[in-house]
Amino acid sequence: MRRTLIALAAVSAVTLPVVPALAQTATATETFLAAKPTDVLSYNLVGLDVKNPQNESIGEIKDLILSQGSLAGYIVSVGGFLGMGERYVIVRPNSMKVVYSENDKKWSATMNATKDQLKAAPEFKYEGRWKR
């Protein structure tokens, strides 16, 4: 029993000074934030049909690429039928317009491209570190 108390005292002496130091490095305002009306949740984007200005379906957002905490790209599937033969390309965020319609209560994604341009873009493959 005495050894257990000594061990607990030793562990407490080592860990207690560290905990307050960690708590002081980040305040609640630096760690947490509130969503703004202009923010988009990822689940609203994944699966979203991408259309061109002529309102033709040219692909579907399949995934998002985050780099150092910021949106770096959309992975868009193009071609294929029922998941067969589709290929993936990465689209820069500034080349796609994602908007929410208050009237329709729907998200939409448009980009100035054709299905053929997307098919000709460099292919992204889910392999290696990006394997699903």
Rank of each mutant, 00 (worst) to 15 (best):
8 L>F: 07
71 L>E: 05
33 L>V: 12
36 K>I: 05
11 V>H: 01
78 V>Y: 05
23 A>N: 14
45 L>E: 11
26 A>Y: 13
99 V>Q: 15
39 D>E: 14
77 S>T: 09
50 V>K: 07
118 L>M: 06
69 G>M: 01
51 K>Y: 09
22 L>M: 13
60 E>G: 05
19 V>E: 03
72 A>W: 03
13 A>D: 03
114 T>N: 10
45 L>N: 03
24 Q>H: 15
123 E>A: 15
26 A>L: 08
51 K>V: 11
106 K>Y: 03
119 K>A: 13
55 N>M: 07
73 G>Q: 04
127 E>G: 10
112 N>A: 04
21 A>H: 12
92 R>T: 04
9 A>W: 02
74 Y>G: 04
65 I>Y: 11
83 G>H: 08
79 G>H: 09
127 E>Y: 07
35 A>R: 12
66 L>Y: 12
94 N>W: 01
32 F>W: 14
131 K>E: 15
72 A>T: 04
6 I>T: 08
45 L>M: 14
114 T>C: 05
106 K>D: 09
121 A>H: 03
57 S>D: 09
81 F>C: 07
96 M>I: 08
16 L>G: 06
11 V>S: 02
54 Q>A: 11
1 M>Y: 10
53 P>Y: 02
16 L>Y: 12
88 Y>K: 02
126 Y>I: 04
42 S>Y: 10
113 A>V: 01
112 N>Y: 02
103 N>C: 00
1 M>P: 01
58 I>Y: 01
115 K>M: 02
24 Q>R: 15
67 S>N: 07
113 A>R: 09
19 V>D: 03
71 L>F: 08
110 T>A: 11
25 T>D: 01
19 V>L: 13
21 A>K: 14
114 T>E: 04
65 I>S: 07
125 K>Y: 02
13 A>T: 12
62 K>A: 06
64 L>I: 10
53 P>F: 00
18 V>E: 00
127 E>F: 02
44 N>H: 14
22 L>W: 09
12 S>R: 00
13 A>I: 10
57 S>V: 07
118 L>I: 06
82 L>C: 06
20 P>I: 08
8 L>N: 03
31 T>G: 06
111 M>Y: 06
108 S>I: 05
111 M>D: 03
110 T>K: 14
54 Q>M: 01
81 F>S: 14
50 V>I: 05
106 K>F: 01
119 K>L: 15
38 T>I: 09
17 P>A: 03
119 K>M: 13
36 K>S: 15
12 S>N: 02
68 Q>E: 13
32 F>H: 13
100 Y>P: 00
121 A>L: 04
62 K>D: 03
24 Q>P: 00
89 V>G: 03
39 D>R: 11
98 V>G: 02
8 L>D: 00
24 Q>Y: 11
114 T>W: 03
92 R>L: 05
53 P>Q: 06
107 W>V: 02
28 A>H: 10
15 T>P: 00
128 G>V: 10
99 V>N: 14
53 P>N: 08
115 K>F: 01
23 A>C: 08
101 S>E: 05
130 W>L: 08
8 L>R: 02
123 E>S: 10
58 I>F: 01
